[in-house]
Nucleic acid binder design. Structure first.
Lengths: 245, 245
DNA sequence: CGCCAGATTGAGGACGCTCAATTCTGGTGG
DNA sequence: CCACCAGAATTGAGCGTCCTCAATCTGGCG
């Protein structure tokens, strides 16, 4: 992690370019973005609830998540972010944060000024639409989580979450079957709408079925096809292969 | 409904302008959009799954919804659309439909060509960002649904759904406490992740508490404050009052 | 008048929750 | 080097919400 800014921008650029028809000039605009590197400790806020944000936040290392909360303190994780995710891109158009973002493990982030993003988005309309598209893709992940948490049982829910993170991890160059998770069992419960106790029992079940092992903050997938079937996982919603027409 | 196109564009413009700093010139661009009016019968597809869309779809009358589905046929509603909602705006940047959109009741829609939207978005960057913002606002609704379905019990879930639709209905000029719902109890179950049987029992419970009555495809709110408290409903996520800085 | 989708009610069962205790782990300080 | 500690993981027992299956009722429509 010699240069977090360059590393993170490169990952993000790869994802933007995957889904859009962009030019080398666009690439130069993105890789030339300014940004301030910052270390965030585990369980600390990256974006506070109600804050009016002026810079978007790009993950360079670690794991972060967006949180919602009910009145009686139940936390619900509404998105997970890994390196290369511009986790706050929508704040460019809606700067008032309606939910907090926290680091799940020790995390390195890069703060990119909104104005710089607006400027290059206006300079290149195709790039502007690529930003828009990035937000839409994130929204489709939230939609998939909605289906997952509303309609599947605990085993499928957790399997689905692990499949999604596996595929996204693979996209940034990690082995799909063995990668850092950056989440505790409590976090998995916060994401899937389950209690930590039930997460624990369900992970044991998945392990006993020979599908996946989840030691603390880590994932070892033993049977990808089995896990995928159990989760009914279809990566189409991640849009890693659908470019602009 | 003399002129569905003009009526629907006007509603949509109002929402765009509410959240953004737009000019009279932007207004002329939006209200001048072309569109083909179409009638869709109840339970028919407006957008088919897997279709590659070339026109976005604006609701002029009726109620529509986006659907997901699990392998064993459980349906999950991931968004509800009422008049003035550009339900397919994200298809401008991701034209491959990963989920179907259906009419819940008899619905009038307006098809607006993507190219026309791209053109006016490039002509006015502020307008382009307003489109982006509209998608982000929809995403935040999906996020709220995720919290709702993952963390609240049946009574709060249904109350929350009704509160949201009440506030959105009010925005388009309907009385907040008495409006058409366009959904059956089965649809409410599809939205909240509950079975129709349990929806029915829960609606009876809400009625017996004197909070709300839900005769077929209609809502009569008897005690707004009580319903809002029951739902833990806070309309901030709808962003009806947060403009661009 | 018959038909059908939707609404309604009953009875029993299952999945996930609550409460509680114990073990494991990594980090800290003596 | 070891004792200690906090947070996380693990396991057990009992319970409640919501589901399943099934039957009946209602209203709109051909």
């Amino acid at each position: 992690m010699a240069a977090p800014l360059a590393y993170a921008l490169d990952l993000w650029w790869n994802r933007l370019a995957l889904r859009s028809q962009l030019t080398p000039a666009d690439r130069a605009l993105v890789l030339g973005l300014p940004g301030e590197v910052q270390q965030i400790a585990s369980n600390r806020d990256i974006v506070r609830l109600g804050e009016c944000v002026t810079r978007a936040c790009l993950i360079a290392d670690g794991t972060a998540a967006r949180f919602g909360q009910t009145r009686d303190g139940l936390r619900q994780l509404t998105a997970v972010y890994i390196p290369g995710d511009m986790c706050d891109l929508h704040s460019v158009v809606l700067p008032l944060a309606t939910s907090a973002i926290q680091a799940l493990s020790a995390t390195t982030v890069v703060r990119v000024p909104h104005q710089a993003l607006k400027d290059i988005g206006e300079a290149s309309p195709a790039l502007g639409r690529a930003f828009w598209r990035d937000c839409v893709a994130d929204a489709q992940i939230a939609t998939e989580w909605l289906i997952n948490n509303s309609r599947r049982d605990a085993r499928s829910r957790i399997a689905h979450l692990l499949c999604e993170i596996a595929v996204r991890s693979e996209r940034i160059g990690r082995p799909r079957d063995h990668f850092p998770l950056g989440m505790t069992q409590i976090h998995i419960g916060d994401a899937t709408g389950l209690t930590p106790v039930h997460v624990n029992r369900t992970l044991r079940d998945l392990r006993e079925r020979g599908l996946v092992e989840v030691p603390p903050r880590e994932v070892r997938i033993l049977d990808w096809n089995g896990l995928r079937d159990c989760a009914e996982f279809d990566p189409a919603y991640l849009h890693f292969h659908s470019a602009e027409p």
